[in-house]
Design a protein around this nucleic acid. Sequence first.
RNA 1: GGCCCCAUCGUCUAACGGUUAGGACCUCGCCCUUUCACGGCGGUAAUAGGGGUUCGAAUCCCCUUGGGGUCACCA
Length: 486
Amino acid sequence: MINDTPRVRFAPSPTGYLHVGGLRTALYNYLFAKKNNGSFILRIEDTDRARYVEGAVENLLTTMKWVGLDYNEGPDKPGEFGPYMQSERLDIYREHINNLLDARKAYYCFCTPERLTQLKEEQQKQKLPQAKYDKHCLSLSKAEIENKLKNNESHVIRLNVPPTETISFDDIIRGKVEFSTNVVDDQILIKSDGYPTYHMANVVDDHLMKITHVIRGEEWLSSTPKHVLLYKFLEWELPQFAHLPLLLNADKSKLSKRQGDVAVEDYKSKGYLKDALNNFVALLGWNAGDDQEFYYMDELIEKFSLERVNKSGAVFNLEKLNWLNGEHLKKLSNDVILELFKNELASSELKNTNYSDDTLLLIIDQMKERVATVKEFISEAPYLYSRPNSYDEVFSSKVWKDNSAALLTDLIEIINESEIIDKDDYETCLKATAEKNSVGIGKLMGPFRLALSGVGHGPGVYDIANIIGKDEVVERIRVVIKTLSL
RNA sequence: GGCCCCAUCGUCUAACGGUUAGGACCUCGCCCUUUCACGGCGGUAAUAGGGGUUCGAAUCCCCUUGGGGUCACCA
């Protein structure tokens, strides 16, 4: 066997951001490594120069750190098997491609894009089941090749796939998978710009980096026979494969940008907690076999196993993420939430206002029970920070009666005469007003809430009053009387 | 279209031949509460279809259907 301790890797291409599907793949790799005392390696697959994105790698590293997926080796964490950027390993691929070339397991191809397009069109016209390269350049003589190379003719190097062989491999998640080589194309291994394609680079690197388990998304399953062939040609031992089920849009297609946020940083900026995100994503395709849904990272590590990963795709369900984030939020101490809250305030339109920690803590106590994210402390209860600029019509028509203005006028007077120390004092005032007018306190409650928040839901009225303070309470009552008595 | 993968409530899932098919999110109802929530209790809701195998099938096999992935000098 290859291993005593497993070595796994997460190998994203730097497209600009970390995709949540990528996060799930990275997480499973991480959990598997930690669980089995193995190593988790981060390797950057940046062999596509056309798709080079400025700052993408830095961004990726930052996001990996934010979600807490520490790697043992990576671009900024040198290890024994570096470099960990594929663009810095070109000479390594060159060496191995030469071996392949010598053994005629790979060959130069000088076909022009035009010929290739034409070939494809013809094959489609003939209704061939599958378009494949016709091995045209395989018959080139050594001299012809030398000559073309000397003349600097543009070329690629292709994998020489043998006909009519069965490629099979065992997938930890899917079991035995088989392909006929008749359906695998002579894959380009080295592009005309001299860079390797994914297929070449990932096989070489996985071998050289002593990767024991290749844990990646299911979209790679159908190109795995090419990889298996490469291992065979290079006479290298096969790693174990585990192809993870895909993360899906609501319509069950592969999770994509078009249908919502897919970048981890989007979720970060929307106020989701890293623990909640990890927890949620971990459960998309895996469960421990019990009813536990709330996890911290250490518990995930303890319970994770590839054997319990599902085969079928999972819809990325925002509602459940919201719930989980709320659960994680509630478990946080108010001190921690206070810091998060202050950060949110600083990046909101409220950044120029000043609130005491005491006030903020009052808001936290009220809001953390009823929101999904800290951001919603603000968005769901704007009336805690500023006077309502309108009154909800449905709620208003329900609670605003003919005598409401008169009752509230009395209430103002009583509040003004009272010493207000905490929220219970507002209740006392409402009761006194109700008694004085011989009505139930319910007659006051609705109009009072309407005055303070303008809407029919939110924290308890006394809590709202307590948060905004006596002067503001009185002022808001005045405003609602003035506005609705017209 | 070829190839490959997949198939339990709307969604995430449990069940590894014998359960009234369980849990969670969502949703609905009731209780609590002279407000809003929280909380508590309860409800609606699933084995895609058809054949086998078996005393017994969500579970094993086959077919059909459906969905997805992949067929680039992108990963």
